[in-house]
Amino acid sequence: MYDTIGIWVGALFTLAIYSFLYKENPVYRLAEHLVVGISMGYIIVLIYNTVILPKLLEPIFGGNHWLLIIPGLLGLLYITRFIPSIAWLSRYPIAFVMGTGMGIGFPLTMKAYVLRQLEAAVIPLYSSGMPWHEVLGNIVMIFGTLAALIYFFFSKPHKGLFFGTGSKIGIWVIMLGFGATFGFTVMGRISLLIGRIQYLMGDWLHIIE
């Protein structure tokens, strides 16, 4: 019974959202506002039940872990942003999160995003027994990376063989990247539509499996 009601609600709200494709209308706006409101309500309750209650309130009042009052109070300082006269207090929890985040994340982030990627770009163009398509891939990868980097080097005018031609090739490489991203984006958007059509025709109308 509840499942059926849920499916009907889901189907009608899907149609309400898609009605925007024709033109904006009150039904669409109602659905849009409900999505935002319900999502926020759900997240607040979820965070209360999964974080605030079991990790703060219960240990303090049930387990006598009084030290937790300190991070609790620090967290409450975020709310001072809504009171202009003491809004500056909100900088303390922000500074704490930023500081610990940087301290914990910086070495690993450098390793993951910079050093590993550099390492992956330092590869032989050719070694014995390497299939031709791999050689070609390595050449494209290395020279493509260099050309794209040249394009983003702004301290020299993009003229001459090295900077001029290099940056032009770099633009092509970047455009190819954008093209691939656009293709995937089209696929992604169509996939979302497919998901909704499957829901409407399958779960709701039972026309398809």
Binding site: R116, F184, G188
Partner: peptide, 22 residues
């Protein structure tokens, strides 16, 4: 699908074993 191209470099660098895109 929108994210897929962003993460191909992680396959090439061996940081991920594979990727399902979209």
């Amino acid at each position: 699908g929108v994210m897929a191209t962003d993460y191909y470099p992680y396959i090439q660098s061996g940081q991920i074993i594979g990727q399902m895109g979209g």
